[in-house]
Amino acid sequence: MAVMAEEKQKERSLEENFAFLEETLKKLEDSEIPLETAFGLYEEGMRALKACNDQIDKVEKKIQLLQENGETNDF
């Protein structure tokens, strides 16, 4: 089950992750949910957040110039 959830999560785009987080929060904000479910949702939300962070891939990029032969070099 957990493995499946993880796989599913890997497929999610940034946008989908955001939507997923929104949904997760909505479920979590109902304080009557079972404790175990709540912890599960929290964990999934945190994992989605981490995925978002990974997707942004915070490395500053140099502008590349695309040559006619398909190669790139710095602009």
Partner: peptide, 14 residues
């Protein structure tokens, strides 16, 4: 914001 809300919600549930 998501992170804060997640934390807040789980705290609230707890």
């Amino acid at each position: 914001n998501f992170r804060r809300k997640l934390q807040y919600s789980i705290d609230a549930v707890h």
